[in-house]
Structures are given as C-alpha cells and as structure tokens.
C-alpha cells in the first residue's frame, strides 16, 4: 500500500500551495519594483536588493530543509514541507507537531512514523491552526499599527526587543530542559535525557558560540548566516560520532 504521508495527492496539494506563494510574492515584487522606478530608484539598486536577498536566503533555507528532514521520519516529507513553506517557522512547527503527537498519546511521539491517518490529520490541523493567527491579526490591525503604534514601538524598541527575545528563549528553554532532564520512552534508546542528548546539546551551543565569535573577530560577515545550520549539522554529526566512539552502555546511558 502506498504510504499516505507521501501520496501523490499530498504532493499535488503541496505544489498548489508553493505556486500560490510564488505567485503572491511575484505580484508584490512587481508592484514594488514599479513603484521603486517611479520614485527614481535605479534598476541596479533594485536588482541588488533581489540578488542579496536570494543569496542571504540559501543558508537559512538549509536549516529549514533540515527541519523538514527531521520531521519527515514521523510525518513524511510533504506535510512538514508545506508547513515550512507557508507561515512555517522551524521552532514552531516542531513544537506544534510534538505537542499534537503528545496530546494524541502516540507511542514514541514524533520519533516514530505516524501510521494512523486520523492522528496525521489531527497533527495537520494543530500545526495549521497554531500558525494562522497572524493572518487574522494583520488584515484587521496592521494599518492601524503602522499609523499609530509604529512610533511607540520604535521609541520602546529596547523593551520590545528584550520581551521578544525572552519569549523565544522561554520556548527554546523547554526543549533544552527536556534534553537535560526529560523522560523519554522507556523502550527507545536515545529518546530520554542522557549522555547523547547532553553531548549533542553542548556541542551545538559550543560550535555556534565559537563560529559566531570567529565570524565577528575575522569580520566574516558572509559567514554569519551559515553559523546556525553548520552548528546544528555539526552537533548531529557529533551525536553519530559519540555513538560510535563511546562504549554502548555509556553513549546510550539515560538518567531519567
């Protein structure tokens, strides 16, 4: 039987969604380009904005593709791909899918392939409904925000920055805490907090800090967008290496 998570129907849905996004982006691009020319901005400047943005996009897209890959073991490729193409955000999608899998009581959570179509559709609903709120907020409030609150937000920028960062740190902290002290599925090696999860976490943090420092000291601005995906892949590679090098009872030791 064909895997329902990778069916041609799902691929068609994904392709329709991707085309829709590209069409919308082209529409805005064309309108902005025309307005830019009317305002006297040179074609070279406009082309520069396109070129630098495309280049800038390559590295973070690797991280996004890695998230698709990470979620694909349980959800197949298409659903994570669709979710990461529209509103998707790598910490959100993993969180939403994990929370849904947890709520449904799926054995193994997202580390096992989801084989129940009802659970799969529930996860799709949670991921979608979790992410659509901006699409309700923006049409109603953006014009008013731009007119009135914009100035306040800019004058209060340090506080807004701090609270935004704190919200993200809080979200990340839940997963970090899980890697340090979370209880995994009893019958699954590598799922609970243990030697491998802590070594992976520490490697990711250390490599990221090192790369950022190096890029800054050497003035390698081009390297900055690569620091995050490189750290993540290095830490994933380190997990493989530690699993090979360390004695099995040490590598797969879990304390929860």
């Amino acid at each position: 039987m064909q895997d329902f998570r990778q069916s041609s129907f799902l691929y068609l849905l994904g392709a329709a969604l991707a085309l829709f996004i590209v069409a919308q982006s082209l529409f805005f691009l064309r309108k902005a380009w025309r307005r830019g020319r009317e305002l006297g901005i040179s074609p070279a400047t406009l082309r520069g904005a396109v070129g630098s943005s495309v280049l800038f996009t390559v590295a973070p897209s690797m991280a996004i593709a890695a998230t698709v890959l990470a979620l694909s073991n349980s959800l197949g490729l298409v659903l994570p791909w669709m979710r990461m193409s529209v509103i998707g955000n790598f910490s959100y999608e993993a969180t939403a899918a994990s929370a849904a899998a947890g709520a449904l009581g799926l054995p193994g959570g997202l580390s096992e392939p989801v084989t129940d179509p009802a659970a799969f559709s529930a996860i799709a609903w949670v991921m979608t409904i979790g992410s659509i709120f901006p699409l309700i907020l923006l049409p109603v409030f953006l014009k008013k925000i731009q007119a009135k609150i914009g100035k306040t937000a800019q004058s209060n920028a340090p506080w807004t920055d701090l609270m935004g960062a704190a919200a993200f740190i809080g979200l990340i902290a839940a997963f970090v805490a899980r890697a340090l002290a979370g209880q995994g599925e009893a019958d699954r090696a590598g799922d609970g907090a243990g030697v491998l999860s802590v070594l992976t976490l520490v490697t990711a943090i250390a490599v990221m800090l090192l790369l950022e420092l190096l890029a800054e000291k050497r003035g390698w601005k081009w390297a900055q967008p690569f620091t995050m995906p490189v750290s993540m892949f290095t830490a994933m590679g380190a997990a493989v290496a530690f699993a090979q090098i360390l004695p099995e009872r040490v590598a797969f030791l879990e304390w929860r």
């Binding site: 990470a70 993993a94 902290a173 970090v176 992976t200 990711a204 892949f233 997990a239």
Partner: peptide, 12 residues
C-alpha cells in the same frame, strides 16, 4: 534521534 537538542542548542 538527537535533532531537537542540536536544533535548540544552536538556537539557544
């Protein structure tokens, strides 16, 4: 298996 510690470690 360790993708979440890797991802959230780098993010943190």
């Amino acid at each position: 298996q360790q993708v979440l510690p890797a991802l959230f470690g780098a993010l943190l």
